[in-house]
Design a protein around this nucleic acid. Structure first.
Lengths: 342, 342
DNA sequence: TTGTACGCGTTATCAA
DNA sequence: TTGATAACGCGTACAA
């Protein structure tokens, strides 16, 4: 690790000159000197010390990516294909824009904020924070923040978010199920907060508008913890005998359910139809291929990263709230019923 | 962002004392002073500036995780469930041990090394590098390195690796297929280097030991690029008519193949048996559930991270080469043939 | 056209 | 028991 000082000494010149050449402030430097320095830099393979540079410049080119662990659901958050695809999208943008990514996974917001401020991160990406967490962070952190899939109840102004119209997506899918002749449609999720809540609301709204009644039994609660999962699926499969279709809050759960159904000799879509949400590789590879609501996880991450970098550069975003498009993917897991069949 | 200097001024004492209290070098400090400083630190929510600290200490507590992009295969590397699970395992260990993770994804080794040295990373984790890349890195980087799934032909000493006996795993699975009565067994992969090569070798060895002949037709080359995939699967499914079983180099490909087969009304396992490698969620969720070679991606990452942190701390590793265990998972995608059937 | 000198926040050495 | 002070490597205002 050679330093500017050493280079300057070797070349018999000052650190300023070397530094100027490095940064292309070549207006005041003779052509010969420039060449000499350039060649030497090549030769010794000079790499600046980022710590020193950051200290001097009071910046870091680090973008913090913070997400809360959801141990009950995924002991390893990266196992969630949506999360990993999104991170891939974020990483790519951060890298190509010349920034660095630092991942903070924790369920302790305070800890995350401590990390972010020690590293002096230039900006922050928050995924799936609940209302108050997001607010708390925004207050304590004075640099740009972009949220992903964060819903704020109180219509916070000035708060940047990249999301999806989850409610509308779920609404459209439910309407499709209704149009396919289904009336007894269950909804499967592991909670009813955040994103999942919006999807649930879309589902309910579609039922309501179609004049189809909803009872609490329609809601299938999946317990994803390893020790609960099987029992939970048992109960759900039993309960589903009363339904002709299930709308699952995610593809992952949809595929898990389809496997459980098949293990119990219940055929999809002949005995029951299944729909998902996200359209990840599970949906595409599974057979029957899953009818689902498509969204682009990678692009979601990328869009958020681009927006954040814009903010860091001081650009005014064209919009503080981006809603990415969704699209119904009609595949083979939903059966068209004739009306006598239902 | 309050600094030590400001704290010292507010408290009317020197930065040394403040720093000492912060680091618990409290032997030489009066109880009263300690209390005074502690309380003040609490109050102003002091967070150290890592850049300054790293500069002074000439360390970083950063662990670099470097992997090459494989654009042809996964435009988004994180889509590979093996990679994302492994990263999850790495991240968890790094975090709980008080280090930070910095991800470097690039296909340019030189660029990766530049990043690692600007950040002055304390150690390096390399995934799936080929022989010469790994060697090149080791030579130019003087701090601890641990590789994951890297094979070195020349039996490099002193080079740390966490891997799996891929050859033996593939050997056992192939033997299982043979024992199940299969003789015409194809092998599916997208290349024949690195890890995939070892698996291929295990497969070939098992065939050889069983006296089963192998021809180049046995090797099904899957082209995973979007524009090639369908044609490639077409060709493979056609070719597979001559076989009673396929051993796929990964679960992902195995499931992809099973879907392609099903789309062509070829039944698994009745018409053809399929085996995979890795045992990720695809294998477990797909139906028929995939018979595969289990390995623990998360633990692989975690083991490598633990080993690296040990090296950083100056501990001598009990072994420089760790081979994690594998295990055959017999599920439903392989049919037991009677001998007349074959 | 080039060089000196200081600041960035922290740690560490040594003296008081 | 505490406090100056010199590093650490880089950027930059200002002087030469």
């Amino acid at each position: 690790m050679i330093t500017i000082k050493e280079i300057a000494r070797s070349l018999g010149m000052s650190t300023t000159t070397v530094s100027n050449v490095i940064h292309g402030k070549t207006g005041q430097v003779s052509a010969e000197t420039i060449e000499r320095v350039r060649r030497f830099l090549e030769e010794v393979d000079y790499v600046p010390n980022i710590n020193a540079r950051n200290l001097a410049r009071n910046q870091s080119r680090i973008i913090g990516v913070a997400m809360k662990t959801q141990d009950y659901k995924y002991p390893n958050l990266m196992k969630d294909p949506f999360v990993s695809e999104m991170i891939g999208g974020i990483e790519k943008v951060i890298r190509t824009e010349g920034y660095f990514m630092m991942l903070y996974i924790s369920n302790d917001i305070a800890e995350i904020m401590r990390h972010v401020s020690t590293w002096n991160a230039d900006g922050l990406l928050l995924y799936d924070m609940l209302d108050d967490d997001g607010d708390r962070v925004s207050r304590s952190y004075k640099k740009p923040i972009v949220c992903i899939d964060t819903y704020s109840e109180e219509g916070n102004e000035g708060f940047c978010n990249v999301g999806l119209d989850d409610e509308e997506g779920a609404f459209c899918m439910t309407r499709y199920l209704l149009e396919s002749g289904h009336r007894r449609i269950a909804f499967l999720a592991d909670n009813r907060i955040g994103v999942d809540l919006r999807r649930f609301r879309g589902y309910r709204r579609a039922l309501r508008e179609a004049g189809v009644e909803y009872s609490d039994r329609n809601f299938c609660l999946l317990r994803p913890e390893p020790e609960e999962k099987e029992r939970s699926l048992d109960r759900i499969c039993e309960n589903l005998r009363e339904y002709s279709a299930v709308f699952c809050v995610s593809d992952y759960y949809a595929c898990m359910l389809m496997s459980a159904l098949r293990d119990r000799d219940i055929l999809v879509p002949d005995d029951i139809s299944v729909a998902g949400f996200d359209d990840n590789d599970y949906a595409r590879i599974y057979r029957p291929a899953l009818t689902t609501v498509h969204q682009d996880a990678e692009e979601k991450g990328a869009a958020a990263a681009r927006m954040l970098i814009g903010l860091i550069r001081g650009e005014e975003p064209s919009s503080r709230q981006i809603l990415l498009p969704f699209e119904l993917k009609i595949r083979d897991s939903v059966k068209k019923l004739n009306f006598y069949n239902n």
